[in-house]
C-alpha cells in the first residue's frame, strides 16, 4: 500500500485508473437506473415511491462510508505521517457531505408521501442530520486554519473523535426516538427484500461507490497539484530572496 505513498506514483497510477473507473461508473449507473426505474416492480405498500430508495439508500450508505474512509485516512495520517492520507481525508469530506445532503433531501422527499410530512424526527434521518453537522465542522477546520500541516493534524483528530462518537450518537438518537414516538415508521428492506428490487439497489450502490472513487481521485489530484504549486512558489521565493 505504501508503494503508492509517493505523490508522483499516485499521479501516474490515477491517470491510468481514472478513465476506466469513469467508464465503469457510467455503465453501472445506466444499468442501475434501468433496473430501478423500469424493471423493479412497485411496492405493494408504498407503490411507485419505493423507486426513491434506489437513490436514497446508496446516498446514505456513501455518507457513512465516506466518513469511515475519512477517519481511516486520518488515522493513517496521524500514525504514519503519510502525506497522501492527509490529502485523501481532506478530499473525501466535501464529497461525503454532498452524499449526506442528498440522503437527507431524498429521505425527506420519500417521507412526504409516506409520513405526510417533509421532515420526521425519525432515528435514521436525525442521525444523518448530525452526521451532516460533523462533516460541516470538519470542512470548517480546513477552511479556517491556513497552514496545511497544522490543519491536517487538527482535522485528523476531529475526524477520529467524530468517528468514535457516531455509534454513540446513533444509539442515543434511537433511544430518544423510541421514548418520544413510535408512529408510522416504515421499515425498508429487511430480509424479505425481493430479488427484482435487490439487484438494482446493489448495482446503484456499486455505481455510487465508483462515483465516489472517481470524485475522490479528481479531488486528490487537484490537491496534490496545489501542494506542488505551493512548494514551487516557496522554493522560488527562497531562491530569489
Amino acid at each position: 500500500m505504501f508503494r503508492y505513498a509517493n505523490p508522483t506514483r499516485f499521479m501516474a497510477l490515477t491517470s491510468v485508473l481514472l478513465p476506466w473507473t469513469i467508464a465503469l461508473t457510467v455503465v453501472s449507473f445506466a444499468a442501475g437506473l434501468y433496473g430501478g426505474l423500469f424493471t423493479a416492480p412497485p411496492d405493494y405498500q408504498q407503490g411507485e415511491t419505493v423507486r426513491i430508495m434506489f437513490v436514497h439508500v446508496p446516498a446514505a450508505w456513501m455518507a457513512m462510508a465516506a466518513y469511515s474512509f475519512m477517519a481511516l485516512a486520518s488515522l493513517v495520517a496521524i500514525v504514519w505521517k503519510h502525506p497522501l492520507a492527509d490529502v485523501a481525508a481532506k478530499s473525501a469530506a466535501p464529497i461525503g457531505a454532498c452524499f449526506t445532503f442528498l440522503a437527507l433531501v431524498t429521505g425527506s422527499l420519500w417521507g412526504k408521501p409516506m409520513w405526510g410530512a417533509w421532515w420526521v424526527w425519525d432515528a435514521r434521518l436525525t442521525s444523518m442530520l448530525i452526521l451532516f453537522f460533523l462533516y460541516l465542522g470538519y470542512i470548517a477546520i480546513w477552511q479556517t486554519i491556513e497552514e496545511p500541516i497544522r490543519a491536517g493534524r487538527i482535522a485528523a483528530i476531529l475526524a477520529m473523535v467524530g468517528f468514535i462518537n457516531i455509534p454513540i450518537i446513533k444509539f442515543s438518537v434511537e433511544w430518544w426516538n423510541s421514548l418520544h414516538q413510535s408512529a408510522s415508521i416504515i421499515k425498508v428492506g429487511g430480509p424479505s427484500i425481493h430479488i427484482s428490487i435487490l439487484w438494482p439497489l446493489l448495482v446503484m450502490i456499486t455505481a455510487y461507490t465508483l462515483l465516489f472513487a472517481v470524485l475522490l481521485m479528481l479531488s486528490m489530484r487537484s490537491e496534490v497539484l496545489k501542494r506542488r504549486i505551493r512548494s514551487i512558489r516557496i522554493a522560488k521565493v527562497e531562491g530569489f530572496g
Partner: peptide, 21 residues
C-alpha cells in the same frame, strides 16, 4: 403514483452529483 416526488429525487440527485463532478 407520486411521479413528482420520484422526478424531483432523481433530478436533484443527478444535478448535485453532476455539479460536484
Amino acid at each position: 403514483a407520486y411521479t413528482g416526488f420520484i422526478v424531483v429525487s432523481y433530478g436533484l440527485t443527478f444535478l448535485v452529483l453532476g455539479v460536484l463532478s
